[in-house]
């Protein structure tokens, strides 16, 4: 396509640059303002929050609200303190990530490195799990966990969800890109399948493991529907599960505890957000390479 030659003058270029930055600053503000609003409300007394809502004022209630959110429970049993929920979230996130990576690597290893009659069949069985999101099989899944007596347990929270097509495909893709000569050399040197996996494949996959770990940790930490259904004991609540309790407790009471509730919401987002920010390059790698 031919258009007439257009040249920009120096002030015009400057104006364009300001426009570009303006768009980006607006976008960044759109993303961050809601969270700053939560933070602001945690510094104010509850009475003020109830009457005025979010404002520009900064109060002195931050540490008081933090203490209430982390060490006081609002339930009947007194078990769901912030610290307890943080612990449960951590177990769910770590268990999820570790489980999915171990199972995914094992399955990918079997599919890529072994002569096996039903490799394609196994691949398809794993693939079809993508067609069955938790939300469409939620009731019967609940019943099975109930029959197995796994309600209100960590096993029940983690195991039913750790089969992972995403992790399996991610490692399958990566294993396939590893040069053939490597396994030939390893076999000449007398390495068996177990030694090859532990001493060569796992160390080689370190970056991939880190990338997948971040994605799956965030994914596990942020689980909502499953923990909501299978945990009823307050000492098994995760932070994200506790959110439901929080919003419900804001409804009925005469003086809703916005400071405490918002503090818990902030504690719920802080660990995954920090991980994503600090391990950004691994995170982006895990995300863009696992979904394609």
């Amino acid at each position: 396509m031919k258009s007439e030659i257009k040249t920009y003058t120096r002030p015009q270029i400057k104006l364009l640059l300001i426009f570009d930055h303006g768009v980006l600053i607006l976008g960044a503000a759109f993303m961050i303002l809601p969270v700053l609003m939560l933070l602001q409300m945690t510094t104010m007394p509850d009475l003020f929050n109830m009457k005025t809502g979010p404002s520009l004022a900064i109060g002195d209630q931050l540490d008081d609200n933090f203490r209430k959110a982390m060490f006081e429970a609002d339930g009947f049993s007194g078990a769901n303190t912030g610290v307890r929920m943080l612990w449960n979230s951590m177990i769910l996130g770590l268990g999820f990530a570790a489980g999915k990576i171990v199972l995914g690597m094992m399955a990918a290893y079997a599919i890529v490195y072994f002569r096996m009659r039903f490799a394609t069949f196994a691949f398809w069985i794993i693939f079809t799990t993508l067609l069955l999101p938790l939300e469409v099989r939620i009731l019967p899944s609940y019943e099975i966990v109930q029959h197995l007596g796994m309600l209100n347990t960590y096993q029940g929270l983690i195991i039913p969800l750790i089969a992972s097509a995403t992790a399996t495909f991610f490692f399958r893709q990566y294993f396939r890109s590893i040069p053939e000569e490597l396994i030939e050399a390893a076999r000449i040197d007398g390495a068996g399948p177990f030694k090859f996996f532990v001493d060569i494949l796992v160390p080689l996959s370190q970056t991939m493991i880190a990338a997948m770990f971040i994605i799956m940790f965030v994914y596990g930490w942020n689980q909502y529907l499953w923990p909501t259904m299978i945990t009823t004991d307050e000492d098994m609540f995760t932070l994200v599960r506790g959110i439901k309790q929080i919003t419900q407790s804001l409804e009925g009471t005469s003086l809703p505890e916005y400071g405490r509730a918002n503090m818990l919401a902030l504690v719920a987002i802080l660990p995954p957000v920090l991980i994503v920010i600090f391990f950004q390059s691994w995170f982006v790698k895990g995300l863009t390479e696992s979904d394609k």
Partner: peptide, 21 residues
């Protein structure tokens, strides 16, 4: 960084912010 960190926010927490807004 400022445009991607919200990836890690759990959907119900986003809902809580919405309830306040």
């Amino acid at each position: 960084t400022l445009l991607m960190w919200v990836y890690a926010v759990a959907p119900p927490v986003a809902g809580v912010m919405g309830l306040i807004l």
